[in-house]
Design a protein around this nucleic acid. Structure first.
Length: 646
RNA sequence: GCCGAUGUAGCUCAGUUGGUCAGAGCAGCUGAUUUGUAAUCAGCUGGCCGGGGGUUCGAAUCCCUCCAUCGGCUCCA
C-alpha cells in the first residue's frame, strides 16, 4: 500500500500502482468526471499513469490552471491531428499550451492556412473529440524515435529529439495521430466540447530569425460551449478598452502617414493628460533631490561611439544626419545617457557632492522594425521620463531603493495594482553580448538583487534579459488584451562612467569613478499613457483628466450665467468647458457621458437665480445642487485625496 | 524585417457571382426649435472606394506592386 496525501493534507492509503483517475473515483463520481490531470509531487502527469510511491497529489479540473493546461495541450494535439487529416504531408514543430489556449507550429510546404480555413479545422477537431480517442503514452529509445521521424521526413521533430536525453523520449498517440510529447494528456479527447481557432502567425523555428518560418495556429478550447461564448465576449469587451480605440474616441493622440509611422501626434486632450503626469513626476523628483537638465535631440556620432551604442545599434538606427559642408555625422538621440554624462563632465565633483541626479523628459528616436509598431506602446519617437544618478559605489543600494520608492509611489497614485517586477541579468551563455568587466557586472547584479530584497519586492529573476551595458529591474504591466509591457526601469551601470571617464574626488584626494543609475519610472510617456488608458478605460482620475467639468446650459438663455460659472471655475484652475451647442440637455448629457468628463454642471433658470450648479457625476448621475464654491471645494478635496503624499 | 489578414466620406460600417454601387448612421454645415439629467426635427455639404500599374467593352469588386493598419514571430539601448 502507498500513502497519498491530498491538498487538504488528508492521507489515504491505496494499492501501489493506483492512478489519478482511481483516486478521483474514490472521492466522488463528479470529480472523476471532471478531473483532467493529476499533479504528483509537483509533476503533472496523465490520469492513467500508475503512482508507485507515497505521494502528495492534486487532482486538476478545469478550475485549476494545470487542468486547463492539460486540456489545451491535448487540444493542440487534436488540432495537429485535424490538420494532418485535412492537409496530408504537413510537418509539425511544437504545439504547447499557453496562458490562454494553445498553438501549434506547422510547416505546410507550399500550402497555407488562413482564417477562412478555421471552420473546417474546428469541425474536424470536434469530430475527433467526439470520437473519444484515447491518448496512449509510449516510451521509446532515442534511436527509434529518430528513425520514426527521419522516415516520416519531419525534420523539426528530428531536431527536437536530437536535443533530448536518451531514455526519456515519450510519444502520445490518439487515433491515427502520433506525436513526440512529454505529456501529460487527457485520458481521451471527449472532454473537449468547444474549440475556436483564433489566428495564425508566422513563427521562426526555435525562435531563430535565421531559421525557417513556420505557420503558427493559435486556438483555445473549453469543456462547455457556454464558456467559449463567454470567452469571446470577454475578448470583445477587452477590445473596447484598447488605447488605440479610446485614444481616437477621446481625441488624445493620432498618427499620420504623412508624418511617418510610429511617430505619435499628441492632440490637445492627450497633451493635457501627459503634461499633468509630467507635472506630478517633476514635483516628486524635485522633492527627491533631482535637478532638471535639458539636452538636444541629436548628438555627434562620436558621442555614441564613446557610449558603445553605435557599435551595438549604429546599423539599426535611423541614418545619420550630416552637416552640409564638413560631412560631420549626427544621430537622432536614441538615449539620453551620453548627453547626461557630458553634463556631468562639465564640472568637478567632490565625494560630498554625490549623488548627483539629472532628470529630463528626453525625447528619443529609435528605428523599430515596422512590424513591431503598436499604438502608443511601441513607437519610433517617444519621451522618456529619464534621469541619471551619479553616485559613489557605497551609495548604489540606497539610491536604487530610493528609486524603487518613486516607482511604487507612482503606481500607487495611479492605482496600478496589477504589476510585476523583473530583475534582468546577463545570459551566462552569451557573455560576448555585453560590454564591461565581469567584476563590475557582478557588483551591479548584486546591488539590484539586494536592493529589491530590502524593499520586500518580489521580482522574477530572468537571465539573458539585461541591457548590453548593465543589469536592470523592470516593472511590467499588462494591457487590455493581456500583453505584458515594460513600464518603469531602473538600471545600474558601471560601464558608461568608464567609457566617459567620469570622475569625482574622494576624501583621499584621489580620483574615483562614480556609478550610474539609469531610471525611468514611467518608462516612456507614450507607453505609460497607453497602459493607463487601458487600465481605467479612459475614465482618468480627476487630477489627471484633460477636462474635469463641462457646463451644460439648458438653453441659450443661460449663456451669460454659464460664462460666469466658467470664469469662476477657471480662476480655481478647474479645467472646465461649456457645451454651447443648440441641443437639448439630454443630448448634451449623453455626449458628455461618452466623453467621460467627470462632472457635468447643468445651469438653467433655477441655478442662475440661486448662483448654483446642478452637478451630475460621470457614470453615477445627478448628485444634487451646489453653489459654485461648494463644487470647487468638492473637486479640490477629491483631487487632494487621489494624489498621495510624496 | 518575416508570416497572415485588412484598407469604402472626419468616425462606425453596407456594397450579392465585375454591369445606375458609390450608399447608411453618426459627426459637420444651414435653418426651425429655446430645450431640465444618456440621441429634437428638416435640408445640405463630404469619397479618384489606401497609392500606382495591369486584365476587361466595363473594376470598389479580378491580378501585380508599393504604402499603411491589425494579429503574431523576431527585436526592443
Amino acid at each position: 500500500m502507498i500513502r497519498i496525501t491530498l491538498p487538504d493534507k488528508s492521507v489515504k492509503e491505496f494499492r501501489e500502482g493506483v492512478t489519478g483517475l482511481d483516486i478521483a473515483k474514490s472521492i466522488s463520481e463528479g470529480l472523476a468526471r471532471n478531473v483532467l490531470s493529476v499533479t504528483v509531487n509537483g509533476e503533472v502527469i496523465d490520469l492513467d499513469r500508475p503512482i508507485t510511491r507515497d505521494a502528495e497529489i492534486k487532482l486538476n479540473t478545469w478550475e485549476d490552471n494545470e487542468g486547463k493546461a492539460t486540456m489545451w495541450h491535448s487540444s493542440a494535439h487534436i488540432m495537429a491531428a485535424a490538420i494532418e487529416e485535412l492537409y496530408p504531408g504537413t510537418k509539425f514543430g511544437i504545439g504547447p499550451d499557453i496562458e490562454n489556449g494553445f498553438y501549434y507550429d506547422i510547416d505546410l510546404g507550399d500550402k497555407s492556412i488562413s482564417s477562412n480555413d478555421f471552420d473546417k479545422i474546428e469541425n474536424k477537431m470536434l469530430e475527433i473529440a467526439r470520437r473519444k480517442e484515447q491518448f496512449e503514452r509510449t516510451e521509446v529509445p532515442k534511436k527509434e524515435a529518430l528513425e520514426y521521424y527521419t522516415k516520416k521526413g519531419d525534420e523539426y521533430k528530428v531536431d527536437l529529439i536530437n536535443d533530448l536525453e536518451d531514455g526519456k523520449i515519450s510519444f502520445y498517440r490518439s487515433g491515427n495521430f502520433t506525436d513526440l510529447c512529454r505529456g501529460p494528456h487527457l485520458i481521451d479527447t471527449s472532454p473537449i466540447k468547444a474549440v475556436k481557432l483564433l489566428n495564425t502567425a508566422g513563427a521562426f523555428w526555435r525562435g531563430d530569425e535565421s531559421k525557417k518560418q513556420l505557420t503558427r495556429v493559435y486556438g483555445i478550447s473549453f469543456p462547455k460551449q457556454k464558456m467559449l461564448k463567454e470567452h469571446l465576449e470577454m475578448l470583445e469587451e477587452a477590445k473596447k478598452r484598447d488605447h488605440r480605440k479610446i485614444g481616437k474616441d477621446l481625441e488624445l493622440f493620432a498618427f499620420s502617414n504623412k508624418v511617418g509611422q510610429g511617430l505619435p501626434l499628441w492632440l490637445p486632450k492627450g497633451a493635457e493628460l501627459r503634461e499633468n503626469l509630467e507635472k506630478f513626476l517633476k514635483k516628486v523628483q524635485r522633492k527627491a533631490g533631482y535637478q532638471p537638465v535639458i539636452s538636444p535631440h541629436i548628438g555627434n556620432k562620436n558621442l555614441y561611439i564613446t557610449s558603445g551604442h553605435y557599435e551595438k545599434y549604429g546599423e539599426d538606427s535611423f541614418r545619420p544626419i550630416q552637416t552640409p559642408s564638413e560631412g560631420e555625422e549626427f544621430f537622432l538621440k536614441p538615449m539620453n545617457c551620453p548627453h547626461h554624462c557630458e553634463i556631468f563632465k562639465i564640472k568637478q565633483y567632490s565625494y560630498k557632492d554625490l549623488p548627483v541626479r539629472f532628470a529630463e523628459f528626453g525625447t528619443v528616436y529609435r528605428y523599430e522594425q515596422s512590424g513591431e509598431l503598436h499604438g502608443l506602446t511601441r513607437v519610433r519617437g517617444f519621451t522618456q521620463d529619464d534621469a541619471h544618478i551619479f553616485c559613489r559605489p557605497d551609495q548604489v543600494k540606497e539610491e536604487f531603493t530610493a528609486v524603487i520608492d518613486i516607482v511604487l509611489l507612482i503606481f500607487k497614485a495611479l492605482d496600478f495594482k496589477d504589476y510585476s517586477a523583473q530583475i534582468s541579468l546577463r545570459d551566462p551563455d552569451k557573455m560576448d553580448k555585453y560590454i564591461g568587466t565581469d567584476d563590475n557586472w557582478d557588483k551591479a547584479e548584486q546591488a539590484i538583487i539586494e536592493a529589491t530584497e530590502e524593499k520586500g519586492l518580489t521580482a522574477d529573476i530572468v537571465r539573458g534579459e539585461a541591457a548590453f551595458y548593465g543589469p536592470k529591474l523592470d516593472f511590467l504591466v499588462r494591457d487590455a488584451l493581456g500583453r505584458k509591457w515594460q513600464l518603469g526601469t531602473i538600471q545600474v551601470d558601471y560601464n558608461l562612467p568608464e567609457r566617459f571617464e567620469l570622475e569625482y574626488t574622494g576624501s583621499d584626494n584621489q580620483k574615483h569613478r562614480p556609478v550610474m543609475i539609469h531610471r525611468a519610472p514611467f518608462g516612456s510617456m507614450e507607453r505609460f499613457v497607453a497602459v493607463m488608458i487601458e487600465h481605467c478605460a479612459g475614465n482618468f482620475p480627476l487630477w489627471l483628466t484633460p477636462d474635469q467639468a463641462i457646463i451644460l446650459p439648458i438653453s441659450e438663455k443661460y449663456e451669460k450665467y454659464a460664462k460666469k460659472v466658467l470664469t469662476l471655475l477657471n480662476n480655481y484652475e478647474i479645467r472646465t468647458l461649456i457645451d454651447w451647442r443648440n441641443e437639448k440637455t439630454g443630448k448634451k448629457i449623453r455626449d458628455a457621458e461618452m466623453r467621460k468628463i467627470p462632472f457635468m454642471l447643468i445651469v438653467g433658470e433655477k441655478e442662475e437665480a440661486g448662483d448654483t450648479v446642478s452637478v451630475r457625476k460621470h457614470g453615477e448621475g445627478d448628485i444634487g445642487t451646489f453653489t459654485v464654491e461648494e463644487f470647487v471645494k468638492m473637486v479640490e478635496q477629491e483631487v487632494s485625496k487621489l494624489i498621495p503624499e510624496s
